[in-house]
Design a protein around this nucleic acid. Structure first.
Lengths: 343, 343
DNA sequence: AAGACCGGATGAATCGATTCATGCGTACGA
DNA sequence: TCGTACGCATGAATCGATTCATCCGGTCTT
């Protein structure tokens, strides 16, 4: 690999000083036309690309923001990332996308990496239930924003969706269709998202005048399709067999659906099924899935915008942390059509 | 944000020179026990994190490799990324994951970013059919490896899956089940993956003693579920209605499946359907999808390993470019069970 | 006793881009 | 004509970590 051409090479080639080359790049207005063109030509000819690390070293911070999500295999987070990336792009920032896979250790490792990189800021869906890693990270002075997780009381902004409300929407829908008992499939329980959705469902159950145990809990290890299949098998073993199932997540719901289908149990005729997130595959399932839609892309975008606002440095500490809570929306599809409509 | 603590602060605190601090971090063996502990203590107390940009500036290259994929919303590429990331992690390297969304302009933009970052190397699934952007990128001297795309004749390594073979597997399967004509759904046509799969299917058709026009082509704009739905609608309008459909991609197949289902067309009884990639959602579809499995994770891993081998710098240009071609594998599921088994 | 050697620590030079005080030349107003 | 202002270019200082030639004090060799 030939030695990288630097700003000095360009300067020499164009017969100017390095300062002038820098000006051509960063403040073209301050350079005389002729000089500017000469320098531009030199840049082209040499194929000069400025070194981001040098630039960064001087500036003290980088031009990228980090996004640390719980599960990249979940299209919900991919959507979220897309929104964040767009907003960042508009602000001239890059996004470093990372996957903690719900592992606090991975999370800590990535946060360390971000600190070394002196990233402009971090968007994070925390995996560590205790919040140790983030608290340790905070001392570096790098701002961060919680995504898909409220952070009231924390020294940070947050953008989340009202999971309690979402859980209530799903449960109300099922109860409204005549079901007297609902199974809630989700886990691990230490994730607030999972707990909140359950809380919402519980509230809906109470509203309907039913006892709390009308909401039966089936815990899962993870939030993926495989866990869903596993949960589906457990559902089949229950007696009496449930008539309504609410999954904390569409991946789980798809897994459940698959198991039920394989066992010849009809959805929605035998069991009504509701998921959460409304990922694209929910609609594409052959029994299209009723789901609670979260504005994932918007959430990503807003989180990035909050972070950018916090870090743009124009105002001196004129930043007050905000906690934005978006509203979920129920999308009804075939998987939960009321049993009484059975042909 | 308090001023970042640097190596100098640590040195002062520990009462040693900066060189010694650096040695503690990078070559602990060369530092006396007592000194080392003193320095470590200072590091802890001050919360020192070394600046990657300074390190990088000195080193001339960074410790991250970039991965530029065609579509992050496609689980296939997420799998691929997972494999690459693991391999990189083992080598102490980070991965910067980016999505060109099949847009040559985005691709060019990202490659520019990578050059500025002085990335260690790039794994790329090219979007630009002409290859201009990559050729322009090559002059920076940053090594790159093609993934999911063979690069024979190029000055780079590549890891790919034999798409011709994959196409043939799918088509042979359908022909073997008695179908005399197959619709191939895919696009855009300038993607070699798409063309190769078609070529393979064509070969299988020829093997079966059928004329080339036994393979009917339905072009799509993109490779996502929405395009699949669109293609499904077109399939329904064809007469005679096809009995076998081979999609260039599982996302397309899921879209097709959805449309057929909504129209009351049974899969596989009325139409047999085969996808490609064997993403997790293929198995999870309520009519589990027959698909051609690609070892996505392994491909990502091997590509990263090739890149690391090329860049580890131990051997002086002892590197010969290699082109690895993996074999696809047909996974038969319900969506293509032979029509004669119709109950 | 002189020299060789060694573990250990030092600190100046270096990487490449940015920035800013400074210099030079020209034009304009007083 | 002098002073000032302005446009434009300069180049040295700076960011923080790494590296390497060098030094120091002590031990071993001959």
């Amino acid at each position: 690999m030939a030695r990288m051409v630097g700003i000095k090479d360009v300067a020499q080639r164009a017969g100017v000083s390095v300062g002038t080359v820098s000006n051509v790049i960063n403040r073209p207005g301050t350079v005389a036309e002729a000089t500017r063109e000469r320098v531009q030509a030199a840049i082209e000819e040499l194929g000069y690309v400025r070194s981001e690390s040098a630039r960064q070293l001087r500036a003290g911070q980088s031009r990228i923001i980090a996004l640390l999500v719980l599960d990249m295999a979940n299209p919900f987070f991919v959507d979220l990332a897309t929104g964040a990336e767009r907003a960042a792009r508009e602000a001239g920032l890059g996004v470093m996308l990372c996957n903690s896979a719900q592992d606090p250790e991975e999370e800590a490792e990535y946060l360390g990496l971000f600190a070394e990189q002196r990233v402009r800021g971090v968007l994070v869906t925390p995996a560590d239930p205790e919040g140790h890693t983030l608290r340790a990270f905070a001392r570096h002075g790098i701002p961060y924003v919680f995504v898909d997780r409220t952070a009231a009381g924390t020294d940070a902004c947050s953008v989340s969706v009202d999971d309690v409300e979402g859980g209530a929407l799903a449960a109300r829908h099922l109860l409204g269709a005549g079901h007297r008992s609902i199974v809630y499939v989700g886990g691990p329980a230490h994730l607030p998202q999972i707990e909140d959705r359950r809380t919402g469902a519980l509230a809906a159950v109470a509203e309907a005048g039913l006892p709390p145990d009308a909401l039966v809990r089936v815990d899962t290890e993870r939030l993926d399709v495989a866990s869903g299949r596993d949960a589906g098998a457990r559902l089949l073993g229950m007696s009496p067999r449930p008539s309504a199932v609410f999954c904390a997540n569409d991946l789980l719901a798809l897994g459940v659906l698959q198991t039920l289908f394989a066992a010849g149990v009809s959805v929605p005729d035998d069991i009504a099924l509701v998921g959460y997130d409304d990922i694209e595959f929910a609609a594409a399932a052959a029994v299209p899935l009723t789901s609670v839609r979260q504005p994932a892309q918007r959430m990503g975008r807003m989180a990035a915008e909050l972070l950018i606002e916090e870090t743009d440095g124009t105002g001196q500490e004129g930043h007050a942390h905000r906690h934005i809570v978006l509203r979920p929306e129920l999308v009804v599809r075939a998987s939960s059509l009321p049993p009484r409509r059975h042909p």
